[in-house]
Simulated scan of single mutants.
Amino acid sequence: MATSQGRGGRVGLVLLALGPALVAAYAGAGYVAIKAAVRAQVTGPEWAGHKADTAEFTSLGVDTWRLTWWTALVVGLVAVLYLLFGVLLRRGSRGRTLILVVSGLLIVPYALGFGVALFNPPAMLANLYDNPDFLAGLPAWQPFTAWLLLAAGLAQAVGMVLATTRIGRAPAQPQVGSPS
């Protein structure tokens, strides 16, 4: 059984590895955004008279970070599984059908994670907590971090296709006795 070879196989692996990297970028960007929002919250007018310790998260900061972190953790684990599946598919061993079926099912947590991130948990929780200072402190780029998860999923989808197709096929040989 032929496996992916050459440049296409390497590109597939790079795309599969890009998934976990983009999920980590989503988590890192979320942390930076929440940290900025917490700083704005504790220096805002509604925080007057309270102890302002910017080294710690407020309860709103903790809740938003937990939701962001759990989203990144779930999607990150799925991204690592896709990377592992891509490597196994390149080896051309048994179990390709099972790997492809399981990888098809794993799109559900990937899509759910993107959906959660698209709802923008920091802004949603800031509105729920009725905290305009936290909301105003969120950077303008923060709502767009959800698209990192979509980019991760799309990169890994293309990587899986490249891992399952035989790129380095030899050209078909004409059969003896047939007209060319």
Rank of each mutant, 00 (worst) to 15 (best):
20 P>I: 11
32 V>H: 09
104 G>T: 01
78 V>W: 08
95 G>H: 04
81 L>F: 14
13 L>A: 13
17 A>Y: 11
66 R>F: 09
25 A>Q: 04
48 A>S: 05
54 T>P: 13
50 H>S: 12
34 I>M: 00
26 Y>E: 07
95 G>C: 07
52 A>R: 14
97 T>A: 11
87 V>Q: 10
62 V>Q: 13
96 R>T: 04
37 A>Y: 13
82 Y>G: 04
88 L>W: 11
12 G>Q: 09
54 T>I: 10
35 K>H: 11
97 T>M: 11
28 G>F: 03
88 L>F: 06
51 K>S: 10
79 A>F: 10
67 L>P: 05
12 G>T: 05
87 V>F: 14
85 F>P: 00
82 Y>W: 15
45 P>V: 09
108 V>G: 02
36 A>W: 06
17 A>F: 11
81 L>C: 11
17 A>P: 05
53 D>Q: 02
38 V>H: 03
108 V>W: 08
24 A>N: 09
49 G>L: 00
68 T>Q: 11
41 Q>F: 08
64 T>D: 11
32 V>F: 10
44 G>L: 08
94 R>C: 02
49 G>M: 01
93 S>L: 07
69 W>A: 15
53 D>H: 01
103 S>I: 02
44 G>M: 08
84 L>I: 15
68 T>L: 09
42 V>W: 12
58 T>D: 08
93 S>K: 00
99 I>V: 10
81 L>P: 03
73 L>N: 03
96 R>V: 04
41 Q>I: 04
74 V>R: 00
58 T>W: 07
43 T>W: 12
28 G>P: 02
64 T>M: 12
53 D>N: 14
47 W>P: 04
110 Y>S: 05
33 A>N: 00
107 I>R: 11
44 G>K: 10
102 V>H: 03
40 A>D: 14
67 L>T: 15
85 F>H: 10
